[in-house]
Amino acid sequence: MDYSFGRIRTENYSAVNTRWPQPFLGFGDFKELNSASESLESLGYRALEFGYIYDDEKVIHYLHERGNFLFSDEHVDPKKKNIFLVGASAALGDGASDHQNSIWRNLENLLYQKTSDYQVLPAAIRAYNSTQERIATELYLFPIKPNRLIFFHGFNDANQVESLARPGDPYNQGLVYFENSNLLFSFLKLFSEQSNIINSVFKNYIENSISKRSSELLSRTEFYSGYVQSAAHIYMDNIGRVNRRCQQEGIPCYFILQPYRRDTAGTVIEDIYSKINQLVENQNQLKKGINFFDYSDKYANKKSLFFDVVHLNDEGQREVAQDIYSDILQK
């Protein structure tokens, strides 16, 4: 988690620049975003002395018609059949040495061996969960009429235990509420932005306080069980609704529960994944079919493929791309 209060931080293993958050998608308080690479003018606003206003004469048809493509440093090619890898940092390519070794680039290269008709791009923002992906898909992807959507995600839905955000909410959402309702918090935040020492002390205090409280809550059997079920149900509701919208739009959608290193992650993530699999099986038995793949078991013992607990290294990105190609795109 990052509690550095306004200090923009980007991990040194980031393979692709994340776009500046646009309207509707910037909720939450996870400070791991690069600054904007496009101007505010390109987002549909013009500068005044003390602000920006909309004064473009161009007729707007869709919300996504602003700036460069939201999720990638590369533009969507309208002449290609577009396939988007939807998710968060793992789908974006974090862990790879550069974007040429990412899952999505490897997928595109595999497709190029047979045809150059396809373009594969990451529709991914670091720290997103299935709720935010659902919004992004509706507002930014469906209007583009993609050939396919492949969701590579799930870990962030299960990995809220550090901050204990309400299942389905963005990382650190509780801190956002606290910041907006507590004057002392706002005061200390202001000072933390002026001093690295104050920022470090304040950050450590909050981390330790939340971690202690999280451990206390998760040690209670009823709370633990309820949290696991809630996280799984929210994830299932989100992908179920996205799946129905995909069917309405006539766009094939696939959902992959992303792998992670079980030896370094808590048991709560494994329990949430297990509950998700039960819910998916129930849905498919009711003939509400979801194209679902769980890659967590397949990679459970392949520690050498991971950069850290959830991000894959170059070899891991290639192997996952090959599996996605075999399971989904080759058929």
Rank of each mutant, 00 (worst) to 15 (best):
F255W: 08
E38R: 09
A36G: 14
I234A: 03
Q248L: 14
S209G: 00
Y13M: 14
Q160S: 15
I256D: 01
V242E: 00
V320Y: 00
Y13C: 14
K203A: 12
S39R: 04
I206C: 00
Q229K: 12
I206G: 00
L110E: 06
D271S: 13
Y205E: 10
P21A: 13
F69E: 02
L48A: 08
V161E: 12
F69D: 01
R261P: 07
I125H: 03
G289A: 12
N180K: 12
R19A: 13
A158P: 01
F178V: 09
G44T: 09
A36F: 09
Y128F: 13
D77A: 08
G93K: 00
P252E: 06
G51N: 10
S215Q: 10
S35E: 13
L107Q: 11
R318H: 11
L139P: 03
A91V: 06
S304K: 13
E179N: 14
L149S: 04
I290Q: 07
R244I: 03
L107G: 09
N313M: 12
L43R: 14
A231H: 00
V16I: 15
I239H: 04
T137Q: 08
V320R: 00
F151I: 01
Q194C: 13
S102G: 05
N101H: 11
L164H: 06
E57Q: 13
L218M: 07
Q173S: 15
V76N: 01
S39G: 07
S97Y: 01
L149T: 04
L70Q: 05
K189I: 15
V120D: 02
F152V: 03
S225R: 11
Y118E: 08
D157T: 04
W104R: 10
Y128W: 15
T115V: 13
L188P: 06
F307I: 11
E249G: 02
G26P: 06
K189R: 14
P259Q: 05
F187S: 15
V76L: 07
L257Q: 05
N109Y: 06
D29Y: 06
L70W: 02
N238L: 08
K203I: 10
L312N: 00
P252Q: 09
S163R: 09
D29E: 10
G67C: 02
Y295T: 01
C246R: 05
H153D: 12
G95Q: 07
L312R: 00
G250P: 04
K79M: 09
S219P: 03
Y112K: 15
S225P: 06
T10A: 12
V86S: 10
N313C: 10
D73H: 04
Y260E: 02
M236I: 07
S116L: 07
L164M: 12
Y52S: 01
D327Q: 14
W104C: 09
S200W: 07
L164W: 02
D117I: 10
D297A: 10
A231P: 03
S200F: 08
T221K: 10
F84I: 06
Y295V: 01
Y45P: 05
Q330R: 12
N156E: 08
D157Y: 03
V86C: 12
Q247C: 06
E193Y: 14
V310Q: 09
N129L: 00
R213E: 11
D56C: 04
V59I: 15
N101P: 10
Q248D: 14
N129M: 01
N199E: 14
